[in-house]
């Protein structure tokens, strides 16, 4: 369980995240949605101790993220931010193996290498394992980053916009894979998503933010209504049910 209590982030006079309290249950996929500038990424960064909070606390399984030693936390929780640009020329395997750093501290055991190989095949990167990151397409690189984070093998895995750089097919593939990681590998996955329909189809729980606060939270069925979407995005959209999933038609 991740518990966020009164988390606040301010930059000078601007409040980006305002007094957010939230409980993210263990297991399953929780998606954070909301318009640009709602504070979604900031909240995720604070939960994962990448960004200090101006006020409030975050605990992961009872561990306070600001006071727990970073290397202890690195075995419990992992995060992948959006727009990752690694300037170094690393191979996919190098990168994924670095996911074992919290355990190996650089001295990889056989078990660590197994983890890396599993993560690589989980993401379908076997043929690219020895290629350098700068020789891959944006989508392949994104999958390599995801493989690294999964290789870290933490109970809690946070992704900021994991569908960045992915085309339709790969975006759907990625969501299915995350679903599989949640169900088969027993992970708790927290996502920041732009596309509410992906959130609707693949999450167990949706948190809707606007202007730095949580407007609504609940199951996809509870969130995916015209009224809630109007409240969150300020946009009048129709919600239809297709194959048992709520889909909002917001393209026109």
């Amino acid at each position: 369980m991740i518990e966020v209590a009164n988390a606040t982030k301010t930059y000078g006079d601007t409040i980006v995240v305002r007094d957010v309290s939230l409980t993210i249950p263990r297991r399953g996929i929780t998606s954070i949605i909301g318009p640009n500038g709602a504070g979604k990424s900031t909240l995720l960064s604070m939960i994962s101790r990448l960004m200090p909070m101006s006020a409030g606390t975050v605990t992961v399984e009872g561990l306070d993220v600001t006071s727990t030693p970073s290397d202890v936390l690195a075995k419990r929780l992992s995060i992948l931010r959006q727009d990752n640009r690694i300037a170094s020329r690393l191979t996919v395997r190098d990168l994924v193996e670095f996911g074992r750093y919290p355990y190996s501290k650089g001295r990889l055991t056989v078990e660590d290498r197994d983890h890396a190989s599993r993560a690589i095949s989980f993401l379908g990167l076997e043929l690219l394992a020895d290629r350098f990151l700068d020789e891959l397409s944006g989508g392949q690189r994104q999958r390599a980053y995801v493989a690294m984070v999964l290789c870290q093998d933490t109970d809690y895995v946070l992704f900021d916009e994991p569908l960045n750089n992915l085309d339709m097919k790969h975006a759907v593939g990625m969501m299915k894979l995350l679903r599989q990681a949640a169900d088969a590998l027993d992970k708790t996955i927290v996502l920041v998503l732009h596309d509410i329909n992906f959130a609707s189809c693949y999450s167990d729980y949706i948190v809707a933010m606007r202007d730095g606060t949580i407007v609504r939270h609940g199951t996809p069925d509870a969130i995916m209504t015209s009224a809630v979407i109007q409240e969150v995005y300020g946009m009048n959209v129709e919600v239809q049910e297709i194959r048992g999933r709520k889909i909002s038609v917001y393209y026109m």
Binding site: S48, R49, L50, P69, S70, D71, V72, L73, A74, K75, S78, I79, L80, R81, N84, R85, I86, A87, S88, L90, F98, G99, Y101, P102, V149, Q152
Partner: peptide, 16 residues
């Protein structure tokens, strides 16, 4: 090498 991957990656993997 990790530092070369940037602050976020380094922090995520438990290093200061």
């Amino acid at each position: 090498t990790l530092a070369g991957m940037g602050r976020d990656f380094t922090t995520n993997l438990g290093l200061r």
